[in-house]
Amino acid sequence: MPDGLAMAEVHAHTRASDGMVDAEELVRAAAAIGLRVVCVTDHDTIPDLGGAVETGAALGVDVVRGEEVTASFPPGIHIVGLFVERQVRMHMSVEDTVDAIHDQGGLAIVAHPFMPTWFASMTSRRARQLLETHTVDGIEIRHTAPVLPGAWKMMDEFYAEHRERIGAAVGAGDSHFGAHDLGRVVTVFPGSTAGDLRRAIEQRTTSPLTQAAKPHSPPLSMRLAQQYRSMVWLPQQRRTGRVGARGGRAADDVQPGVRAGRDARGARGAGAAAVPGGGPAAVGGAVAVAVPERGVRGGDGGRAGARQRRGHH
Rank of each mutant, 00 (worst) to 15 (best):
Leu5Pro: 02
Met7Gln: 01
His11Tyr: 03
Ala16Met: 11
Met20Glu: 15
Asp22Arg: 04
Ala23His: 04
Ala23Ile: 10
Leu26Tyr: 02
Ile33Arg: 11
Ile33Gly: 09
Leu35Phe: 01
Val38Ala: 06
Thr45Ala: 14
Pro47Asp: 09
Gly51Glu: 11
Glu54Ala: 15
Ala57Asn: 08
Ala57Glu: 14
Val61Arg: 03
Asp62Cys: 11
Val64Cys: 08
Gly66Ile: 03
Gly66Asp: 06
Thr70Leu: 13
Ser72Ile: 12
Pro75Cys: 09
Glu85His: 14
Met90Lys: 11
His91Lys: 09
His91Gly: 04
Val94Glu: 11
Thr97Ala: 12
His102Ser: 11
Asp103Ile: 00
Gly105Phe: 04
Gly106Tyr: 03
Ala108Pro: 01
Ile109Cys: 11
Met115Asn: 01
Phe119Cys: 08
Ser124Gln: 14
Arg128Pro: 00
Gln129Ile: 08
Thr135Leu: 05
Gly138Tyr: 08
Ala145His: 06
Asp156Ala: 13
Glu157Gly: 08
Ala160Asp: 10
Ala160Gln: 08
Glu161Ser: 12
His162Tyr: 10
Gly171Tyr: 02
Gly173Cys: 05
Asp174Thr: 15
His176Glu: 13
Ala179Leu: 00
Ala179Val: 14
Ser192Thr: 10
Gln203Asn: 14
Gln203Ala: 15
Pro208Ile: 02
Ala212Lys: 00
Ala212Ser: 05
Lys214Val: 12
Arg229Thr: 15
Ser230Ile: 07
Pro235Gln: 01
Thr240Met: 14
Gly244Val: 07
Gly248Ala: 01
Gly266Gln: 14
Val275Gln: 01
Gly284Tyr: 05
Gly284Cys: 05
Ala288Gln: 10
Pro292Trp: 10
Val296Phe: 12
Gly299Phe: 01
Ala304Thr: 10
Arg307His: 08
Gln308Ala: 15
